[in-house]
Design a protein around this nucleic acid. Structure first.
Lengths: 186, 186
DNA sequence: GTCTATAGAGTGATAGAC
DNA sequence: GTCTATCACTCTATAGAC
């Protein structure tokens, strides 16, 4: 009995998948229990704050992942075009070519936005700022860079909606291609 | 008592607002009852099929509204540019400059997508097809028109996400302006 | 003995259905 | 209003690592 290892860190990705699939309201403890293969006791042992804490931790982890894998690599390369290309590759892989939704985007649209307002805002701010900085380094004017970055981040969110609506990954991948070309042109 | 007028038709917009605010899973009967000012008995009198029927009817009504007010006016005008401009105006007003979310978009991202798959797909198809047809009449090649239409409809959905995330309507209205310019240019 | 991860019965409240 | 199922959550009891 008991002691089947498992640490809080290992649970977070499974938790994230449950929230992504069912949303915050739809993620019942029964579904969370099923998705994490953990009893209610274990779940509340790891997250005494309940669902709110679970969502908070999941959002923090998503944020950290993007910070490390997307935003940083955007600006640590000598050639900004390389960083931008890498970003699109990472994003395409992360969202599984449109099969996987953006948890933060889902939260932004729902009424849970207000509860996690700071996390939601910061995620998109960080993304837009990182991309914008890379575009400035690539020679764009700051204002133009900001507008382009917003267009790209918004375009990706919209492409996720359409890809899910049509259940077709090519809608997503083609949008990524188009947006990348637009950034690297000129 | 009873007989406070109220017909099924009058309830649908209020129902739509509840689903928009809380999502399908989050729209509890208590919230629906509060949002429609109707007792549970009345609700089930109008919608014997329960929440599923309510969502179905709301989606049908959204679809019809867009069909009449957006898609038709797109192509019944002599000048396609006029129709396109009218579409952006209608969309801006409908989504209250980004304060109001797209119910179909929210459903597309959630796990309720599968339950309402046809409705979700048809809504976006109809929109893209109508816009695409107007662009062809404006002189675009069919393939180019389709790609542009997808870009615009996706871009609008993404702009709704960002507008909610930042709680700023200008993110939405500026995206509408930019997308409109792109369609009317050239 | 103590600490941590586990399972799950049991709580009142609220869910959707009728 | 009344039904049962399920909700988020609490609590007790456990097993094994130190």
């Amino acid at each position: 009995m008991a002691r089947v290892i498992a640490e809080r860190e290992d649970v977070i990705p499974m938790l994230a998948e449950v929230f992504r699939t069912y949303g915050f309201e739809g993620a019942s403890l029964a579904r969370i229990s099923e998705g994490t293969k953990l009893g209610k006791g274990s779940i509340y042992h790891f997250f005494p704050g309940g669902k709110e804490e679970m969502a908070e931790v999941v959002l923090a982890q998503v944020d950290e992942w993007f910070q490390r894998n997307v935003f940083e690599s955007l600006n640590e390369r000598a050639d900004p075009a390389e960083g931008i290309t890498a970003m699109f590759d990472d994003v395409g892989r992360y969202f599984m070519s449109g099969r996987r939704v953006c948890l933060v985007g889902v939260f932004a649209l729902g009424n849970e936005r207000d509860r996690f307002a700071t996390r939601v805002r910061d995620y998109f701010s960080a993304w837009i700022d990182a991309l914008s900085a890379a575009l400035v380094r690539a020679g764009r004017k700051p204002k133009e860079a900001k507008a382009l970055a917003e267009e790209v981040v918004g375009g990706i969110q919209g492409a996720l909606v359409l890809a899910r609506a049509f259940d077709r990954t090519d809608v997503f991948t083609e949008t990524l291609d188009r947006l990348r070309e637009r950034l690297l042109a000129n």
